[in-house]
């Protein structure tokens, strides 16, 4: 199925989890300073494996970058 990962369409398996999307984004699951929002709502790290994605959902995987 298709989801929108960091603004780009991405193909993921049926019943893919947020943790799968994080891995696909290039972030390491254990990396400090990573956070995820699905459809604009924050998904706590403890729920990354349980939160199953649905077709077409928008996933944002962010981390710290240099900033003022």
């Amino acid at each position: 199925m298709k989801v929108v990962l960091n603004g780009k369409e991405a193909e993921v398996p049926e019943r893919a989890s947020v943790a799968d999307a994080v891995a696909l984004s290039g972030a390491a699951e254990t990396e400090r300073g990573v956070a995820v929002a699905v459809e604009g709502e924050v998904v706590p790290r403890a729920r990354w494996r349980d939160r199953v994605l649905a077709e077409g959902e928008s996933v944002e995987v962010v981390h710290a970058v240099q900033g003022g």
Binding site: S25, G26, A27, A64, V65, Q66
Partner: peptide
């Protein structure tokens, strides 16, 4: 201070 942006798989090094 740091900012939050989308994870970029090509980025080198980590501010964190």
């Amino acid at each position: 201070t740091v900012a939050l942006r989308r994870v970029d798989p090509a980025a080198q090094g980590s501010v964190t």
